[in-house]
Design a protein around this nucleic acid. Sequence first.
DNA 1: AGAATGTACTTGTCAGGGGC
DNA 2: GCCCCTGACAAGTACATTCT
Length: 357
Amino acid sequence: MESNKYQFIPTFSLVPNKITTFNTVFRFNDYYQEYRNVTKKKKYIFENKDGVNVKIELKRKSHNLKISDNAYRTMQKKINWLYYLSIPSKQITYNKKLIYNFKINFITLTLPSKQQSCTRDINERFLNQFLTEIRTRFQVTNYVWRLEYQKNGNVHYHIVTDVYIDYFALQSIWNRIIEKDGYVTEYSNKMKSLSLSEYHNIYGIKNKLSFSESSKRYAKGCAEKWSRPPTVDTKSVVSGQAVAGYLSKYFSKSDDNNTIMNEFDNDDNTKNMRLWYCSRSLSKLNTISEYIEAYDYDIFKIVSKAKDLKKFVCKYATIFYFNISNMTGNGRKWIDFILNDYATKMGYLPHKLAFKT
DNA sequence: AGAATGTACTTGTCAGGGGC
DNA sequence: GCCCCTGACAAGTACATTCT
């Protein structure tokens, strides 16, 4: 191989929790007489069948309800951006508790009784409406959602946003929406038929409640005629938490290979169905990629000062994982600057800046 | 306020290039 | 120990607007 056929330019790529260094490779193109970094996509392949070359069009495969590694990485990146760019704020919960340095919120939406139509239908009529409503009512412009199946085959949703939203508000919106198909009524009918001891045996024990706690909840449920099923769960993440681990716990599940579909889902109506999505604001934020020589700083030196640095050397790349909240000094400043500068250029506005109250 | 609607723009997926 | 990146295509949704 001629030595001048390739050109290598040291490059780094940066996201809020890791920096990667690698070489961008240019190959000399004989036809154009210049170095190019272009790739071509194959549209078809030839396969030999009985001595005859047959042209086969390449088609996109279906996800089979499993989020691919690639998509999973992208999703993690989006959440890291969301978390990093969120401006900490003080919030008061529905229990009048104070949350200092609130960063992002994890919302889980479930169905209180057995799913009655296909997941695509639930996506379109329930989740979509829910997102639309929180968008307008709470100015939710930065978020990521994904769907997941519970063991009973019901779909449920996780949403992460940088907006603090009151638990009861979310619950009343979601319950109203799913009541369009009578989910709440079905729940309350089911619950109304239970005695206290039955309630405790089914739900109390499952949730590790004492009998007295069970009876409190039972009494409350009866008083409300079981009209407010606990379909919503929220968790706040504050600054400084090791968010990656936290997220993987709540936002991803170890993939059991047998994905549970319910009786309404089939290959037709789940094909190409979105398994996750993020707001447009976040979809614009990707990996920052730059040539190293474009900066005066010594990247390796700066990053190496991070306390809990984890370094991985791969064949063609070196990756440094860091927790930016543990960093100080110039390294912190430098990374902060690049990240924020990029986010600003891409028009990203954290909720607190976009909607000052 | 909540629901419906239309479309411009977005996404997921996969293949493929690179071979220091 | 996890490589990085990109483009192309199909087909979905985010968002503004309109309707009830």
